[in-house]
Every structure is written in C-alpha cells, then in structure tokens.
C-alpha cells in the first residue's frame, strides 16, 4: 500500500488504508500515518490500538465461507430486502434526473484534443481505420470486452497513461462530444448500444490482416 497524497483524504479513508496496510500495525506504520495525516494523528493512534488488539483476537486473513451456499439467514434476507429497495430508489432517481454532464466531466477523452489531421495520423499509426478508431473514441465498445493488452497498446501509442485510457473507455458515452474533430451533424449525438470488442473489429470494414492482428490481443 503506497500512501502518497495526504491532502483531501478523509479520516475514514486513512483508517481504511491503515487497516489494509498490515495485518498488525507496527511503530513504523503508525509513524508513517501520523506523518501523512498529522491532523488525524490522535484518532489514528486510537484506531491502531483497536486494530492491534483485533488482529491478535482474529488472526485469520482467510475467507470465511458459508457451509451451505443456498441457505440464507434472516439477517442476510433483511439486508437483501434493504438493498433491493435502495437499488430501486437509485434507478428511479436516475430516471427522473437528466444526465449530468458534470458527473463525467472529470474523465478526459484523450481523443478530444486531436484535430481531423491528427486523428487520421493516429489511424495510420495504429494500422486500423477511422470507423474502428471512432468507436474507441466515442466509447461505443463495451469496455470489459476490450483486452487490457490492447488498452495498454493504445495508451502507449497515444502517449497516455494506461489508467487514464481505461477510465476514458469506461466513461459514459454522453461526455464524448467535446472533441474538435467529432461531429458534423447538427443534431446532438445520442448514446448508442455498445458492441463487444470482437464485434467492433468485425464490423468496421477492417482488412482480414488488421482484424487478425487486433483479435490477437489477449489478456
């Protein structure tokens, strides 16, 4: 666990981080956290004491699994009911609220800064075609189906951070429309159903060789 940013982190997050860092906190860990979060030093010391005693009481770091996968206790049943209700309310609230651009504003589209010429240059560099690259740009490919290896390759070719590229591919489609080279149509682009990576490769008019190479990216 590497703790680098002390700022803007809540006490809760600091306690989580301490709990994850070591099975039993030691002097070095406590000193490190007190240095990183001087504002919370006292609270973290108290927590470390509880953590140390708890670790001695319950040393196991192994999963506790129920003996019977089908039996559901009253407690779990009640919690599931709460969960279903909350999930329903969340869906209702979402449906009633227009999509908030602000919610996705922090996810940057690495293609947005490219003008038409740069976009075409990237098409050549990646040895794909505009249709396929547009799908990556417009987030019309189901991100879980994109091989991590291809995401890394794309990030490397565009000189981007791999995590930032993955965050872009995972972001909702509505935040894409900021790019300079994107849309000619006057109408507002609507979110479309996402294709799988394989489908996107096979339906973009790529050559056999290009398709074979893209589909060879596997995790």
């Amino acid at each position: 666990m590497i703790m680098t940013a002390a700022t803007q982190t809540s006490l809760r997050d600091a306690m989580y981080a301490m709990s994850l860092a070591k099975a039993v906190p030691d002097a070095e860990l406590l000193d490190e956290f007190a240095r990183l979060y001087p504002k919370y030093a006292d609270a973290l010391t108290e927590f470390a004491i509880e953590l140390a005693i708890d670790s001695l009481m319950h040393r196991s770091d192994e999963e506790d699994v129920p003996a019977d996968a089908d039996a559901i206790s009253d407690v779990v049943s009640r919690v599931m009911s709460q969960f279903e209700n909350q999930l329903f309310e969340r869906r209702q609230a979402r449906a009633a609220t227009p999509p908030a651009r602000a919610a996705t504003a922090s996810v940057e589209n690495p293609f947005a800064a490219l003008d038409r010429q740069e976009f075409r240059a990237l098409v050549s560099q990646l040895d794909v075609n505009s249709a396929f690259l547009s799908k990556l740009r417009d987030r019309t490919i189901e991100p879980i189906s994109i091989p991590k290896a291809y995401c890394r390759h794309l990030a490397q070719e565009m000189d981007e951070d791999a995590d930032a590229m993955a965050a872009h591919l995972y972001a909702p489609q509505e935040s894409v429309a900021a790019g300079r080279q994107l849309y000619k149509a006057e109408g507002k682009p609507a979110a479309t159903a996402r294709q799988s990576f394989e489908e996107a490769v096979k339906t973009s008019g790529l050559s056999e060789e290009q398709q074979r190479r893209l589909l060879s990216f596997r995790d």
């Binding site: 009481m57 129920p66 996968a69 559901i72 779990v76 919690v79 599931m80 279903e84 999930l87 869906r91």
Partner: peptide, 22 residues
C-alpha cells in the same frame, strides 16, 4: 440488476460468516 441480485447474497453470506466469528 439481475447479476447484482445473484452475487450480493453470496458476498453478504461470506461477510456474515466472518462477523459471526469476529
């Protein structure tokens, strides 16, 4: 939500088994 409804009870049951011990 269908997937969530299948996975959530299993996660809760594991957490419950841990809490019954701790």
């Amino acid at each position: 939500d269908r997937i969530a409804r299948v996975l959530m009870p299993q996660l809760l049951k594991r957490a419950e088994a841990n809490l019954e011990r701790t």
